[in-house]
Design a binder for these strands. Structure first.
Lengths: 243, 243
DNA sequence: AAGAATTATTTGTCTGGACAAATTTGGTTA
DNA sequence: TAACCAAATTTGTCCAGACAAATAATTCTT
């Protein structure tokens, strides 16, 4: 008693998955063209395209008109999905907060910061210190933002204005934010930051580093320092897709 | 100077989106059939199917062979997507770590804990203390897990065994984990936990509370205590979908 | 040797068609 | 009136074909 018949395109999709997972088609390399795959599997172009569509939907390949299909990864991209509806939801800053710029300067990266933000030790970057507030004198976050030096003037203007800096930077170069990275750790309050929050140097603080990227690369990296304890809790909700 | 020409199927997809968002096709009701849409828009069935495929990918409709297309929601399901490949990636515990159970007991919830885990002050819950380790005597996390009392015995068995507790609990009631919630904060090290890590009481620690739910409700809530500073950094990567 | 133009290749958009599989609807029978 | 069966309807699978748009490769010109 054979199993239910699966569609031809699913069988082909599975075979290509297998070949990719086993290293027959390396990450970064091109798959055979649609025409070649039609010849290999003796099926119509529609069937091949349906199989490739499945791989594309899983983030395993990208397809470019005129170029072909490139392997992006060797396993499906996700099992669990976390949904964000907006940038403020992502950063957990309500739109009613505002950033007050305290100081900005060019700075030479030390090795610790360079490693965290993706620059190189000794490079000159533009550094902005500010306080994000809900109400006047009610600090939500102390923010240290690093941008590549050539974005310095623009970033400073954006910091003074309204709207997120990274969106303004991306917009200026005609691109969109495509990727965000977030690193969370507990740190002792540095004296200059503890003073802003009225807490003792060395008290536990939550420090969240966020890096925003567009196609061209890093736009901005910001260290966000928050109160410890119940003074700031970073919340995340994850709906799990059925696989 | 007109904008770039958009594909016919995209225009139709957008028009159907509009109609759904404006209430012309109500949630739960059926869309017109493919054949009707072909007649209405004077395009081939391929073009209609491509448009419906886009709505389906956004979770706006479902399509059933023999029945038709049903409206599931009136707006796209998400703008930003964060992907996790596996449970260990979600929790950032490699599968090679193991949980060593130290102590388990029934406990009466105080108001602070009750509020955090979703119980009621005065309720009896089952509490397990353990250390998650990479290598023997190399603690990654100190874990305090609360489960509803009726799961107590099973949870204890699962804690001793391999595999995540919440998955075992869900499996036992014939359900799957459908939702996870995570709350991250910086806290001073309690004495009994600082001792496990060899750090002073009051030192900054990262505390991540995770709650796992199935359709029946809360399965388990665990406080995970990690080293502060560079001793533990919680990393999150977010690919932003184009909207 | 470098840059521009042309050609070849590849995927994207779209048509028309056919048969299969699943669901819904309508008619008949007990 | 309920159950069963057949017919109609709808989406799923798959074919062949054509032209457009984008990219890569090759050729030509300076």
């Amino acid at each position: 008693m054979p199993l239910a018949k699966i569609p031809r395109y699913t069988a082909i999709e599975n075979e290509l998955r297998s070949e990719i997972a086993s290293g027959q088609h390396l990450i970064g390399k091109m798959l055979p063209s649609e025409a070649e795959l039609c010849r290999r599997f003796q099926v119509s172009r529609f069937t091949i395209r349906q199989a490739l569509r499945g791989l594309q939907a899983d983030g395993i390949i990208s397809r470019t008109q005129g170029a072909g299909s490139r392997v992006l990864r060797d396993t499906p991209a996700s099992v669990y999905i976390q949904n964000y509806r907006s940038v403020p939801e992502l950063t957990q800053f309500a739109e009613e907060t505002q950033l007050e710029l305290i100081k900005s300067e060019n700075t030479i990266l030390n090795s610790a910061v360079a490693e965290r933000i993706g620059g190189t030790e000794g490079e000159v970057w533009f550094l902005m210190h500010g306080v994000r507030q809900i109400l006047k004198d009610e600090p939500l976050a102390f923010v240290e933002s690093y941008v590549p030096q050539h974005y310095g003037g623009l970033a400073r203007e954006l910091a003074i204005g309204t709207g997120p800096i990274y969106a303004g930077l991306a917009n200026d170069i005609g691109e969109k934010v495509t990727r965000a990275e977030q690193e969370t750790q507990a740190l002792p309050a540095p004296n200059h930051i503890g003073a802003v929050f009225g807490i003792a140097e060395g008290s536990p603080m939550l420090c969240i580093l966020r890096r925003y990227f567009s196609r061209s690369g890093l736009l901005i990296a910001s260290f966000n320092w928050h109160r410890g304890g119940d003074g700031y809790i970073h919340r995340t909700y994850i709906e799990l897709q059925s696989d």
